[in-house]
Design a protein around this nucleic acid. Structure first.
Lengths: 346, 346
DNA sequence: GAACCTGTCTAGACCGTTTCAGTCCAGCAC
DNA sequence: GTGCTGGACTGAAACGGTCTAGACAGGTTC
């Protein structure tokens, strides 16, 4: 099956000018709502443009003017494509971004890459070719090379991550340390003495921050030293980590997970191994997508409205692009929502 | 917080040419690996470009060359932003798309809109301003107005939907009728006489196709007339539909769901209502994201590799954009994967 | 030696906008 | 009438690449 490949929009500003009986310059002024043309002319030009179905050629526009505003926002994610589909976090985050973009008639330019070097290339290309007016950056590591790269590019960027990691870029973050501490205190208050945590990849900055806070909280509460297992965030590795924990000699009585897909997998493993939840084992998820409410018993979680978070990040990016500045501060801290998987230790 | 807005890459081809002691034309030829320059000159030019850190200005490039190949592909979805995050289908589909795009250094331009009219506007704008080289279209309805619109635009498009709905556009689809029939036959063979189906929104073309095939299969198999409840695909409505079915006088002994999030919700409802699965109730999901393997018991499903489906759709789109043509045919039919939620009727 | 290649390289037109220095003209003050 | 002002509008120069026609050198062929 073949398709005709003749793009419709071959109309140029010259034709519009001719039809309207004015010069190219006037058309430009009229269509961009700039002063210098009379109301009558503006109307004539509008009419002509509408009739010919003219839309300005973006390439020409950005070539000639330094200040080109496009209505796309970038998001580059350096993770395997498979993972994107498996992680409710990204889905909800992207949904939140889209919810704000849609109401402002903006689109999201999405790209998956292998590593940070490729991510920098992509941002560089988008920025130079003026395909985006700004970008959201995620998954910061310590001494992230992207910080310097986007600074050199002069691209408006909102960094999703703790200021310790994002090197002065305008940032939005959640206070994971506080949330982890709250979780540990809660489990301790329920009488749990032996906690464990199934964490994300060690290389990610926020994993390190959470681990540090978790370890400190355990120490402050005088609990037994806790095991922390790192994973790639997938359900499979969450299940494996849970099996390892439950098979160990002194198995934990409570497990904190770094996302919800792993918590769901963990609950399933506990059931499969005959460990009653929450009677003998408490489970606490993170992020709290709708998954947590669909299991039986429903998962207790450090609830984080990821959709709203994505929306807030985008609102700040639009601020930054539009006004040149935005607030710089944390988003709401994840809040503990007890459901059916946490109970007093026996 | 304010950001400096001084783009780095101010080097032009003229400066490179001057440094290398050649003309602009030669630089262009040398850097684009085209014939017409000697190896020595090519080396000199490369050296000069590297020294100055020159990268071609994309805007200028696409302005001058007729064959502007942009490396973006479009996807417009006419659903509320919230739903995108809740439906594993879309994220897996998008992941599959990205997996193919990433290996060809392409990006996805994603936009959520309210309705089909807005979708047409968006595609029109993207197409005219040369922001995409092609697009994927989903969620076809009967007599879909988008068919005529993209034909007029001359934009390469791959339609995801049955040819009955996509009006001659190059299409990829799954044979849902065959899959529904297989599901009904399997449940009948297990001894189930009273089936029900929790379906998607009635307005969607593929919901209608599935419903028709389901009803016919029930009739052919001489089973009791089946109830079909329509939903918005959300877990909440899936749970509500399941409660309604299980509360009815002659409750079904098997339920077929139109996606997996609703099946997970349904399983949870059955557990909550004390209906043992699969002893007294068989459940069959659709799409089969990893969710189905994480519940307990694991969900039987009409398994459909959505990731691979998205990848295949994109491969065909790239074919269409690159060679001007592509195959036109179905993707693999969803295949029944029995797990723990289907069993013989008592 | 003329005619003809072939490979390398250059000058300059061209792509479709924005922008800026001017032109034109009506209106006003004197 | 003259001079001045300011708004409306024009023409042409950017912007930074690609691409085409043609110049030039050196080698072949007859």
């Amino acid at each position: 099956m073949t398709r005709a490949a003749r793009p419709a929009g071959k109309v140029t500003i010259a034709e519009v000018a001719q039809l309207a009986g004015v010069s190219k310059g006037s058309v430009s002024l009229a269509m961009n709502d700039k002063p210098g043309v009379s109301a009558a002319t503006r109307r004539k030009v509008r009419e002509a443009a509408r009739e010919l179905g003219w839309l300005p050629n973006q390439a020409a526009r950005s070539l000639s003017s330094a200040t080109t505003q496009v209505s796309n926002v970038g998001l580059v994610i350096a993770r395997p494509a498979r993972m994107l589909g498996l992680e409710p976090f990204y889905m909800e985050f992207v949904s939140g971004i889209e919810s704000v973009l849609a109401e402002r008639s903006h689109s999201l330019l999405l790209r998956l890459v292998r590593d940070v070097a490729e991510e920098i290339d992509v941002l560089d290309g988008w920025s130079r070719s003026r395909q985006i007016s700004g970008s959201v950056m995620v998954d910061f590591t310590l001494d992230d090379p992207r910080v310097a790269a986007v600074a050199a590019l002069g691209l408006p960027v909102i960094a999703v991550g703790h200021p310790d990691l994002t090197g002065g870029l305008p940032s939005v973050w959640t206070d994971d340390a506080a949330a982890v501490t709250e979780a540990a205190r809660y489990l301790a208050a329920l009488g749990h003495r032996r906690l464990a945590r199934v964490a994300g990849p060690a290389r990610l900055g926020h994993t390190a921050l959470r681990s540090e806070a978790f370890t400190r909280a355990i120490a402050d509460l005088n609990l037994e030293p806790a095991r922390i297992l790192t994973t790639d965030f997938s359900g499979e590795q969450g299940a494996r980590a849970t099996r390892a924990l439950l098979s160990s000699a002194r198995r934990p009585t409570a497990i904190l997970y770094d996302n919800d897909i792993m918590a769901v997998a963990g609950l399933s493993v506990a059931t499969e191994m005959g460990v009653p939840v929450p009677a003998e084992l408490s489970l606490l998820a993170w992020d709290d997508s709708q998954l947590c409410r669909l299991t039986h018993p429903p998962l207790s979680a450090m609830s984080h409205d990821v959709f709203a978070f994505g929306a807030e990040v985008t609102r700040r990016l639009m601020d930054l692009v539009g006004r040149g500045e935005t607030e710089h501060g944390p988003a709401p801290t994840p809040v503990l929502v007890p459901r059916g998987t946490t109970a007093r230790a026996r």
